[in-house]
């Protein structure tokens, strides 16, 4: 089978970790690793791996679009807003890892095949990739979900300057995703950076207010979706199965990263990349080009 040709735009931690995951994939191959600083450590790593590198950013994509099926955009929300129309014009599928919210929200465990019709896919947020599948399971198994809330705790060391500056966008995007996938009337997202050493793994709790919850049905839905997620996020683990106490449902998961380019504790960065890869592979398997 012919591999899908992908380019990675943005050579920071996310972009470089994606590169390693792409090179491992049997469906994808990285044809270009593109940023703005040839001296970044991501570029150095990519050169070491023999990947074509460029510091010409979006201009490189424009010049070489004929050889690119899909772009992962791991720059910033501000930049993706400028890039999105370019990708569209060039007929390149875009998988957006920034909180720009341009495209269709994708949570592979919930709506993988529905996304294939779209040409711009938004990977929501790291906390969204951990919590939304659970919110989706709640939405699928319960009637009248009044309210969904999620709390993610990530290791302080895994949160770079951009993450720290963009907590508000993280919250807004995650809240939007929770509602879209669970059908709840209201949602809330909370994020907390934990400085504990040794670094904690990412932990995400989902709470829900549901009148007359059906716990059996919820347990089944949750175990099913957790199995689905584990296929593309091996480090995803249910640590507190659905619990009904004090008038609320709570479910807790832990995400340990694969440790590809980033340390294992950075499960928050790993899960969004794993989800993005799952999405890209789905395009490749279906041999789709926009």
């Amino acid at each position: 089978m012919k591999k899908f040709k992908v380019a990675i735009l943005g050579t920071g931690n996310i972009g470089t970790d994606l590169l390693i995951k792409v090179q491992r994939s049997q469906y994808l191959e990285c044809v270009a690793f593109v940023g703005r600083n040839t001296n970044s450590s991501g570029m150095a790593k990519a050169r070491e791996m023999g990947i074509t590198c460029s510091d010409k950013s979006i201009e490189f994509i424009k010049q070489n679009h004929k050889n690119i099926d899909l772009v992962f955009d791991a720059t910033s929300a501000k930049d993706h807003l400028l890039h999105a129309p370019v990708f569209k014009d060039l007929g390149i599928i875009a998988i957006d890892l920034t909180p720009a919210k341009v495209g269709v929200m994708s949570v592979p465990a919930a709506n993988l095949s529905d996304c294939l019709a779209a040409d711009n896919i938004n990977m929501i947020t790291c906390g969204g990739q951990a919590s939304i599948p659970l919110a989706y399971a709640i939405g699928q198994s319960q009637k009248n979900v009044e309210y969904i809330e999620t709390v993610s705790i990530i290791a302080s060391k895994s949160a770079g300057p951009a993450t720290r500056r963009n907590l508000d966008e993280y919250i807004q995007t995650t809240e939007k995703g929770l509602i879209e996938f669970s059908g709840a009337k209201a949602s809330k997202a909370i994020i907390n950076l934990n400085p504990a050493i040794p670094c904690i793994n990412m932990q995400t709790t989902v709470y829900a207010k549901v009148s007359n919850p059906n716990m059996d049905s919820l347990n089944t839905s949750v175990s099913e979706i957790v199995e689905k997620i584990k296929k593309y996020v091996p480090g995803y683990e249910l640590i507190v199965p659905p619990l009904y106490e004090n008038g609320r449902i709570s479910i807790m998961v832990k995400v340990r990263g694969l440790g590809d380019y980033l340390p294992e504790y950075a499960g928050n960065l790993d899960i969004i990349n794993c989800a993005a890869i799952a999405m890209a592979e789905e395009y490749a398997k279906n041999g789709l080009e926009v």
Binding site: V151, I153, I190, N192, N194, A196, Q203, V240, L243, S250
Partner: peptide, 17 residues
């Protein structure tokens, strides 16, 4: 011992468990 910080109340359940 786990150096929990405000906002991490959900860890209580895990610890108790």
């Amino acid at each position: 011992r786990r150096k929990v910080v405000a906002g991490q109340e959900d860890i209580i359940i895990e610890v108790a468990k």
